[in-house]
Structure formats: structure tokens, C-alpha cells
């Protein structure tokens, strides 16, 4: 009986968590493209104006970023100015929660058919590398190892700390600017 009463609250909390993580990830994607050269190099191969979306099917939380050129991303929140070029779609909010709470690696979620790719698969592979790089920076190593297929061996603590600090600062600034606006 109690479990039945609590269940809607758990579902609500899960949805809020996924929404919040998308907000953080979107801003962090923008920030990492300003901070890290290898992310910039990955992003440069995307067409200018390229819109990337990560969302929960059928009409759940989403994040949308645009490649504005020169390897830079811009976070659009959850609404796109044009039709999306590449969409990575979780089949259910429960699957998004598994990945965003680092219980399941992104690569494993793909292998487990938790997600669909709508768009050019080569761009999806590239964006997955960008997401992995971002997670390696912003998460403590122990958690990052649960999120990415392989934690980069050449990412040492000083570089990680400095980059993570810069990314979090930019994310926080962006949040404040959004609230003010």
C-alpha cells in the first residue's frame, strides 16, 4: 500500500533528475567545447548549424545543442530553432535514468537497445565520443569509469581538475544568466 503511494513520487523524482541532468549536460557540452581542444576537433567535423538532440521518447525531457562553427556548441535548452539533424532517443525515462545516474554506460545502453539513433550514424559516433570526453572531465574518476567504455589513460589529475573547474564555472554562469533572463 505504502509502495503504491510512494511510486508516483519516485517516478516524479526520476523525471526531475533526468530533466536536471539534461540541463547540466547541455550547458556542460557548450562549456567543454570552449575548454577542450579534442572536443573542438571532434565538433569541427560537424556541419555549421548542426542540431543535436538527446531526448526521452515519446515527448519527454530533451537537450538540444547546436554546432555554431569552429568546434563550438551552443545549448538551446529543450526547444530547437529548426528541424533536428541528429537525435539520440531513449526509449523510456527509466533507460535515461539508468544512463544519467551512471548505472549503465552510454555504450552499453546502445548495445542493450535502450536508445535509438535518428540521423547520420557517423555523427552519432562522434557525439558519443564528445559525451564520453565530457563525462571523463566532469565526473570523479570512479564514477566516470562507470559512465564511459574506457577512461582515457592520458587524462591526468591536474588537467582533469583544471578543466572540470572551468566547465563547472561556465555551467554555473550559464545557469545564473538563464535565471536572470
Amino acid at each position: 500500500m505504502l509502495a503504491k503511494r510512494i511510486q508516483p513520487m519516485i517516478f516524479q523524482a526520476r523525471r526531475l533528475y533526468v530533466e536536471m541532468m539534461f540541463q547540466v549536460m547541455g550547458r556542460a557540452l557548450q562549456a567543454v567545447s570552449e575548454v577542450d581542444d579534442s572536443v573542438k576537433n571532434e565538433a569541427r567535423a560537424l556541419p555549421e548549424g548542426f542540431l543535436f538532440e538527446m531526448m526521452v521518447m515519446p515527448d519527454g525531457p530533451r537537450l538540444i545543442v547546436e554546432h555554431t562553427g569552429l568546434g563550438r556548441f551552443h545549448f538551446h535548452g529543450d526547444s530547437a530553432p529548426r528541424p533536428i539533424d541528429l537525435s539520440i532517443q531513449f526509449k523510456h525515462i527509466a533507460h535515461a535514468f539508468l544512463v544519467l545516474s551512471f548505472q549503465e554506460k552510454t555504450s552499453v545502453a546502445f548495445a542493450n537497445d535502450r536508445m535509438l539513433v535518428d540521423g547520420d550514424i557517423s555523427y552519432a559516433v562522434r557525439m558519443t565520443r564528445v559525451l564520453n570526453r565530457l563525462e571523463s572531465f566532469i565526473l570523479p574518476k570512479l564514477i566516470a569509469q562507470r559512465a564511459v567504455k574506457e577512461y582515457p589513460a592520458n587524462l591526468h589529475l591536474p588537467e582533469k581538475l583544471i578543466s572540470a573547474a572551468r566547465i563547472y564555472l561556465k555551467v554555473a554562469t550559464n545557469f545564473v544568466e538563464t535565471v536572470r533572463a
Binding site: 555504450s107 550514424i121 552519432a124 564511459v148 567504455k149
Partner: peptide
């Protein structure tokens, strides 16, 4: 090869 979809399922990054 690095941009090929199959690489996602390779056990090693």
C-alpha cells in the same frame, strides 16, 4: 573507421 557505426559495439574504446 573511427566514425563507422560498428565501432560503437567494439568491446574496447
Amino acid at each position: 573507421a573511427l566514425d563507422d557505426g560498428s565501432i560503437m559495439f567494439n568491446p574496447k574504446e
